[in-house]
Design a protein around this nucleic acid. Sequence first.
DNA 1: CTGAAAGCGCTTACAG
DNA 2: CTGAAAGCGCTTACAG
Lengths: 340, 340
Amino acid sequence: MKRPTIADIARRAGVSKGAVSYALNGQAGVSEATRARIRGIAEELGWSPNTAARALSGAAAYAVGLALCRPARVLGIEPFFMELISGLESELSARSYALTLQVVADPVSEVEVYRRWWAERRVDGVVIVDLRHEDPRVPELEKLGLPAVAIGDPRGAGNLSGIWADDAGALTDVVEYLVALGHRQIARVTGLPELLHTRIRDEAFIAACTRAGIGEQQMVQADYTGATAARITRRLLSSRTPPTAVLYDNDVMAVAGLAVAQEMGRAVPGDVSIVAWDDSPLCQLVHPPLTALNRDIAAYGAHAARLLLALIEGVPTDDFQDETPRLVPRGSTAPPRPDR
Amino acid sequence: MKRPTIADIARRAGVSKGAVSYALNGQAGVSEATRARIRGIAEELGWSPNTAARALSGAAAYAVGLALCRPARVLGIEPFFMELISGLESELSARSYALTLQVVADPVSEVEVYRRWWAERRVDGVVIVDLRHEDPRVPELEKLGLPAVAIGDPRGAGNLSGIWADDAGALTDVVEYLVALGHRQIARVTGLPELLHTRIRDEAFIAACTRAGIGEQQMVQADYTGATAARITRRLLSSRTPPTAVLYDNDVMAVAGLAVAQEMGRAVPGDVSIVAWDDSPLCQLVHPPLTALNRDIAAYGAHAARLLLALIEGVPTDDFQDETPRLVPRGSTAPPRPDR
DNA sequence: CTGAAAGCGCTTACAG
DNA sequence: CTGAAAGCGCTTACAG
C-alpha cells in the first residue's frame, strides 16, 4: 500500500492539508488540541515527510554538504576526516538532517560542486575544511549565498562563520616544552604549505624558537603522507647535526618518522624526541606511544554542524573558538642525551 | 536573478516543457535537431535540474545511502571506510549521484535509517557493509523493496546482490606461507565474531591448520581496536609457548601487535612474525613494514556503486566476485628462530 | 515527432 | 484559529 501523505491525514482528521502542515511543523495556526490529534493520526499512519516535496515548496532540503579535497589514500589513513564526519553527524542526525558527501579532485571542482548542490537545492548549507591562504572558495560561497561554516582560522574565512582553535598557542606550548626539556635543535615537518593553518603554525614556530634564543630551528615542507615524512626524516637524521626533536604536522607523518628512526637504529626518545600534531588513536598504537597535541575533532564537527544549522535557520551566529589543542606527553619525548 | 527552469528553456526554444524534459533526459520524443538546440539553450542559461522536483515527479532522487555502524573512534582509525567511500564516490559522482552518509549506533537504528530514507525518497538505493550471520538487515531491505547491494559473502546476502572476495582462499594462502616458512605455532586475532567474514576466516584458518597438521593453532576474539589487540598480544607473547606468527584481522590490530612485541623486547620477525589483513598505508608506515593481505578497497566501492546503479535502473544484475586479497610479504615475516 | 495538462506532496500567503 | 487554492519544477501518460 502507498505511503500516507498529509492529504490522508487531513481527510482522516477532517481538516485541510494546510492545517496538517502547520500542526506537524509546530507552526502557529492550529489549536493545541487539533495539533495533538493530527500528530496522533500522523503517527498512527506512519507518516514521514517527503523531503522532495518539502524542498520543492521552498522549504529546506534538510541536508548539509561536505566536499573533501584529498586523494583517496590520504583521506583513508588520516583519522581526522572520519572523526569530523562523526561529529557532524551526531548533530545533524539528531535534527534529521542528512549529510551529503563528495570527494573532489581540486578546489576548482569543489566550488563547482557547491554551485551544483545549491542550484539543485540538494543542500541547505556546507561545511568547508582545509582553509587556504586567500581561499577562492570563500568569496565564491559568499557570492552564491550558500550558508557555509569554515573550519579554520577566522582570518581566512572572510564573512563566513568559522570554528577555530588557537594553533599558534598550541605550537608555542610544544616548543616551550621541548626547550624546557633541554632541546635546542628542533625540526618541524609541516603540512601542505598552501593551507592557512600551516602558515599560522610556521609563524608560531619561528616566533617561539626566536623567543627561546634558538637559531638552529629547521622547517621542511611535507604533505601529510607517510612516504614524504619518511624521506624527510631520513634526511634530517642523516645530517651532520641532526635535530634532537622533531615536530610533525600530523599523526601519520609522526608515525612514519618514528619508523624511520627505528630503521636507522636511533632510539626514541633517547636520540630523538617525536611530537605529533593530532592525537589520534594511531599515536597510542605504536611503541613508544607518541607525545601529541590532542584535540577533540568530533567536537569540532559537532560545533560546526550546530553553527551551520543556526545559520540555515537565520539565527545570527558568531565564530566559535574551540579548545586549544592540549599537549599530551607520552613516551616519545625526553631530554636530549647530555653528549649532544 | 532566479535560476532558470525548463519553462524558461521552453519559452526560449519555442517548445513545450515536455519537449524540453524529453530532450534533456535523452528520451525519445524529440528530433535530434530540436534536442541539440534545447541542450544549447539549457547550457547557455546555466540550467541544472532541480532534484527535488525530479524526485517528486516519481523519478530518482539521484542519491545513494551508506549507513556506518561503528563507533566514531573505530571509524576514524580504520582506513577501510574512507577508501570504500572514495571508491563509491568515484562512480557515483561520475553519474551525478550524491552519497548520503549516516553514522548509526546499532543494526536496529540502521534499519530505521533505511526505512526513513526510503519513505522520504531521500535515496534510490543503499550499500550495506559488515554483513552479519543471519543479518536482520537483509530480510528487512528485501521487504522494503529498497534496492541494495551488500559488500560481503553472497551466502549471507539473501536475495541482495553482493560484492565479495574469496576470504577463505586468502586466509589459506597466509597459513600455507607461514607453514612453508617453518611456523607451527600460529595465532589468529580475529575481528568481531558476529560478522560473517570473521566466521568464514575462522573456518578457513582451522581447516588450513588442520591440513598442515598443526594442532597448536590459537584463535582469540578481538574487535578491530588497537587497545584490545595490544592486550591480547601481551597475553599471547607472555604464554609459556608463545606463537611464532600472529595473523591479525585488520591493519590497526597488527600495528598494535607490533608495538607490543617491541615493548616486550621481542624482535619482529625474529621472535614473532606478524601478518595484517588489509594492506592499508598504515602497514608501510611502521618498522618493520608489515606483511599484509592486499585488496583494493576503493575498487570494491566502485564495483558496489556500479552494481547498485544498475539495480536502480532495473538492469538485472548478478553478484560480483572481486579479486582475492593478495599476500604481500614484507619485513614482518621470516622463518622462526631455529631454537623454537 | 510535439503540445497541453495533470500530478507528485508539500508550504504558504490569502481570505474568512 | 481554519480552509481553499496556488505554486514549487519537474515527469509522463495522453492526444494530436
